[in-house]
Design a protein around this nucleic acid. Structure first.
Lengths: 141, 141
DNA sequence: ATTTAGTTTTGTAATCATTACAACATTAAA
DNA sequence: TTTAATGTTGTAATGATTACAAAACTAAAT
């Protein structure tokens, strides 16, 4: 598995302590964390870490294509260090974001907008209630 | 073309003045407006209209499946009165949201998450720069 | 008509994720 | 070692959205 530093360099990003930590967190934690979750996890190890740095870094990584930005949760942005084309499922009960692999890898490319000069991003989102939450609901009744 | 009132009733929503106005605006204006754009357009005709009503109404319409909620623009939510399955393209330069029809209507359903108990929503989003903005950029140089 | 209960709308005040910005710190180049 | 460029920090705004309670409206029942 590639290191966070190698990842950053591959996308032309200079690997500072903070950037490496954010990239590493996203590679190790496939949970689609929010900026705040990343901040909370990293501030333990990096004293004087600023939330602004987390936001700056996430923007930078996104600009360089090193991560995905998910606007699947209306209340906050989630981030994904796994950039291979795949879809996401957001459970509106537990708030978790799940990965979905799709069968037709060409679908997204085949349906790209005709009037798009440049494409930076393509995302397929599902929203609903996951089995686990539906089960918990049933038991509670 | 169905009227806004008919639309609301079809989804089991009581057609108040405000709800009808919002539904009608979304049916007539296929521009994917924001809550604020809807508010600005309607306050001219409906005195004492409240922004809260716009938000309440949009939530209600969404809950009943009468409209789509688009989280394609990171800075604000857009709404779509056209609920037939289709994708969207957001130009990050001009901020416009464009409709995209896709070729394989079954794709979304075929790739639905395995661990989804209930699905309320499925959206395919593209982001980039539209031809118009790219052209304007070129001319400016 | 009038009362009553239920529903809908309104206005104001929060909330909270994100951004703006300027000072400070660090790194790279000269 | 100076200088310039880049990166980080902290605080203060921003602004879309929500919370909430009062007021207005609607429909049904008396």
């Amino acid at each position: 598995m590639k290191t966070a530093v190698e990842h950053l360099e591959q996308y032309g990003i200079r690997p500072s302590i903070q950037r490496t930590a954010v990239m590493n967190y996203l590679l190790k934690n496939r949970t689609h964390p929010t900026a705040d979750e990343i901040y909370s996890a990293l501030e333990k190890d990096i004293p004087r870490l600023s939330r602004t740095t987390i936001y700056n870094t996430l923007h930078l990584l996104y600009e360089h294509g090193a991560i995905l930005v998910l606007n699947i949760d209306p209340s906050t942005t989630h981030f994904d260090g796994y950039t291979h084309p795949h879809a996401h499922f957001y459970c509106t009960k537990c708030g978790k974001v799940h990965d979905i692999e799709f069968d037709d890898a060409q679908f997204i490319e085949r349906n790209r907008p005709r009037n798009a000069h440049t494409l930076t991003d393509a995302q397929l989102y599902y929203r609903g209630i996951c089995d686990k939450c539906a089960e918990a609901e049933k038991v509670a009744q």
